[in-house]
Design a binder for these strands. Structure first.
Lengths: 214, 214, 214, 214
DNA sequence: TATGAATGAGGATTCATTCAT
DNA sequence: GATGAATGAATCCTCATTCAT
């Protein structure tokens, strides 16, 4: 699966801290929030609990964030940075489409695994809060489009089954990836990581009709 | 996608009504509940609202159900009966694996489309309530296993790619189906129904390595 | 302790059953009520539970009783009949005051023991419901007066300490009896029955200044 | 009656207030609670009413207490401090057993009279709530034991009737005290205070067989 | 009479957010 | 900035009692 490198825009909460101390406090809140969200889920997470976990009084939360939703958005933004940034370059220099797809898939599954608990919460929130549903949708769309472009290219080069609707196929295969990651890393479906990777890769190759290089 | 025909067990709520009138009331509650859940989602649905929608006093709800969860389970059970029962036989007599898969996929997508709003709520609830997460998991497992068996059979007959792990493949393709149905019928992703069906079918065929009959 | 033989007035509930069947039903309710009250206490006893225990539909209760309070009154009335009626005659022919007191005390404690669970509920209800507080007060007053009369008689005969206020003493010693019965038979204070009887008797004798017959 | 001087342990509710303002608020709640409990009884007391009486929003109650039971325990604790602390020393220097008993009895009855309304509620609650039943039992036991010890001492010195079971006698006479206090100060039984005190004293003396000093 | 379904008032509790210090 | 106390809206659920059959 080919995913996107996003520009991570700065979205200030209520206040951009001007002091070092302020910045530290804000960061502590975000870290604490991730911990609490992962432990309790979004609905059961308490703002007061986040503050306490960050070692401060409950009211202090609102110095930096307007709501639980806002800090959750920040937590997710941090995760996304981590998921997208550092690993992209590994794919540089890969030309063979199968290898490229395999590399992208591997990367995606590893990322998901690293952040499984938070991904679970994100999944929860996306089904509750319109704002996050939209966010997820937009993020997904970026991936879909990138994959669709790739598929279209492969079709034009005669490497992939030309009968497939590239856009729908991109969505279908991408969805398959995220759902399987959820099943395995969140719901704990017992599938060996290697088997997972290999099977998903093979489904991609077969589905697209790619000839594997020997 | 090949799914399962379940025996729909009777799960009495708090009380099995002994009168016709009671049965009518209970049924009215379930109908009203579906309406309210579809309109407001699970979290925002109010028990009092269900009763009122059913045209009765708020306390009457508790004559038949112990909680919002319980009546939701009943609503889902009703939907499942509707989804599974009447359409199964249409597949009888189909031998060609591609046709069989295509028929199952079509049926699944149609069912999903018919019940999209409730499926959305079910998705929401599954991410909130352990009980329903488990329920969804069990239901899905039935489908996974049926599909896995089918794939294994095709592999043994030499019709499907023998390199694929049948169990994981079954999950991956089934997950793809449900996720795409969600995207299209719940999130409103704009994809023509025919395109959707054809593309998903083709992905199944390609992925499994089936030769299409001309 | 000398207690009173009451006339047990007939207090019909809502309806005096005219059929044998009606009488049986009513009686079944009272029996069931006692069972439920003893098991759950007054506050936690449910009218529906009484009906069900009596083997009938919940609404039937109100054919015979107007409220939980009313049936409780009936249950208590039954207990009182049992406590007062059959044992009185045993005291006939006793002349020695000490023996008379001892006999009355023994009788009281045995009665209390037989009905301890219900006495506990009665205690509970007396502290909750004005009506029953009054009832208890009236019943107690009868006993107080009888004992006061006895004490006065003994004082006039020169057998008892003439300095004691007969009325207050009667109340004090009677209260001591009921409280000790409660402690031992309801709260389970571990005191051997014989020790209890003997000690209480001796306190009566000493307090009144009676000479024991050899 | 000889009663006990307890160490009054600090039992924090949900939160120990960290501010003066917080301490004031908490105290206001306890004061208001006593007022409401005395006026309405435990069962009819409403948490919201306590808050309102204390002049604050209903939710504020839960900043300091988890439940009606908890604040009631605090109210009782306050009363107990008041009942036990300041008056003890008055008994210092009294040697004559009769005078000692008389002093203790007087003190007890005065205390009870001062707190009669709350004692009534405590009586109510003890018959409803296991927790408070136990509490009452433990408190009573302390008094019982102290009195039992006193009686035993008097018996050993030859001052009191050696035939009496000290432990049972202590319970009986103590129970008589509390019950009479209840009758007079709570139920309003019309007995002059002096008569009450003198009669009860005389019963104690007679019962124990003490020689009164002239 | 008996049944069992329907009623609906009533209060505890939570917790995101605001505010006084 | 930080603190922690105060706010109060909002919903669930029980169960005695009534009522239609």
């Amino acid at each position: 699966m080919v995913d996107a490198q996003q520009d991570v825009e700065e979205q200030p909460g209520r206040v951009v801290p001007k002091t070092k101390r302020g910045a530290r406090t804000r960061a502590a809140l975000v870290t604490a929030a991730r911990e609490v969200f992962e432990r309790d889920g979004f609905l059961d997470a308490r703002v007061a609990d986040i503050s306490k976990t960050a070692g401060m009084a409950s009211g202090s939360f609102y110095t930096y964030f307007d709501s639980k939703e806002e800090i959750f958005a920040e937590v997710v933004r941090r995760m996304r940075e981590e998921m997208l940034h550092p690993h992209i370059r590994e794919r540089a220099g890969i030309c063979d489409p199968c290898e490229l797809i395999a590399a992208a898939n591997l990367e995606y599954l590893k990322s998901y695994r690293r952040n499984a608990r938070l991904m679970a919460v994100l999944e929860q929130v996306s089904n509750i809060d319109e704002q996050f549903r939209t966010l997820r949708y937009e993020r997904a769309t970026v991936i879909f489009e990138r994959n669709a472009t790739m598929i279209r290219t492969l079709q034009e080069t005669g490497l992939a089954d030309a009968e497939l609707n590239a856009w729908v196929t991109a969505q279908a295969l991408s969805s398959m990836m995220s759902r399987m990651a959820y099943l395995v890393f969140v719901e704990g479906q017992k599938i060996a990581f290697d088997t997972l990777v290999e099977t998903l890769n093979r489904i991609w190759f077969n589905a697209l009709g790619l000839e594997r290089t020997p």
